[in-house]
């Protein structure tokens, strides 16, 4: 009896699988966005972007880049602690508690969440791609800051005794695996493998590095992929022979533990980044599809204010204003 029931359950499963294959082709595309929402149950039901004032929405949801998330989270904490209820922000707002939710899942996730309306704002640490813009007809971008990627090595790395500058060509050769050991870079260096640390290949950071430095050349397959920028910097701090593109912000937070190399003779300083002469950099954006509601506008105004920009700078990024 028991055996029969298990076999029958498996049969049903197979059947549904088979039906699923054929039904899939006929399924109209409209259904996709509905099911998409079901995929992220932890995100509360998203309200319409445009709402009449009498249905005042006291929540603002952010989702996206793990680089930008701590910045927005920190700014929103200040905002909530400073004002508590919306009527303190603007007298015309009702007396409701301010709620700003920030969740991190990567830049791609940020764009995705705006497209499928599971969040109000997407946080994107790269430029928005054309293919994504097509799905966001009323896209608005807010530049919050600039993040630069520096070439970080361990302070004990022997390469520092020889040079403090890498040409673009040398960087490409290191990351593509053409230089296998440090000795290949400079004959006086030890014959130790170059441990290349990268972020995941689909991530915003990698994309910037790929387009600004590598071009069409692939990063070698046996590079270590760190699951977060923090893990990447930790790897550099712990391993003498590692090299990776560490975010400017995190390097500033770990001064003395990570040494940076110049790129084509230009150091990663705030001035060079704003001026644009230091090439490995990316914008930190908040994006939204459609018009801002009044509370959303109020929050974005706060982010762009002096206090908001101060937090961006404290986190080690270059503020937009």
């Amino acid at each position: 009896m028991k055996r029969n029931s298990i076999i029958s359950i498996m049969l049903v499963l197979m059947l549904i699988l088979a039906v699923g294959c054929t039904a899939e082709q006929a399924a109209p595309p409209e259904q996709e966005s509905e099911q998409e929402q079901a995929e992220l149950p932890e995100v509360p039901e998203t309200p319409e972007v445009e709402e009449p004032i009498d249905e005042f929405n006291s929540q603002i949801l952010f989702n996206g880049s793990s680089t930008l998330a701590p910045v927005i989270a920190s700014i929103s904490t200040n905002f909530i602690e400073g004002f508590v209820t919306w009527d303190k922000v603007d007298a015309s707002f009702p007396e409701k508690n301010i709620a700003v939710y920030v969740s991190a899942g990567g830049s791609g996730q940020g764009v995705k969440s705006v497209i499928d309306k599971t969040s109000d704002f997407g946080m994107v640490a790269r430029t928005v791609k054309d293919s994504e813009k097509e799905q966001l007809p009323e896209l608005q971008e807010f530049l919050i800051g600039i993040d630069a990627l520096t070439l970080g090595v361990n302070p004990n790395n022997p390469v520092l005794t020889v040079k403090d500058d890498l040409t673009k060509d040398e960087i490409v050769k290191i990351f593509s695996g053409e230089y296998k050991t440090w000795k290949d870079l400079d004959a006086s260096l030890p014959d130790k493998e170059i441990i290349v640390v990268t972020r995941d290949i689909g991530g915003g950071a990698h994309e910037v590095f790929q387009s600004k430095i590598m071009g069409d050349v692939e990063v070698k397959a046996d590079a270590i992929q760190a699951p977060s920028m923090g893990a990447l910097v930790t790897k550099i701090i712990e391993n003498e022979y590692a090299i990776g593109y560490a975010s400017f912000g995190l390097v500033n937070q770990n001064l003395g533990k990570v040494a940076t190399l110049k790129v084509d003779g230009i150091e990663a300083t705030k001035e060079n980044i704003i001026e644009g002469s230091y090439i490995i950099q990316r914008p930190l954006l908040a994006i939204i599809n459609g018009e801002l509601t009044e509370p959303q506008q109020a929050f974005i105004d706060y982010v762009m204010s002096e206090e908001g920009m101060k937090v961006v700078e404290e986190m080690g990024f270059v503020p937009a204003k």
Partner: peptide, 8 residues
Amino acid sequence: LEMGTATY
């Protein structure tokens, strides 16, 4: 690693 950043 890649799901968060894969283009939708």
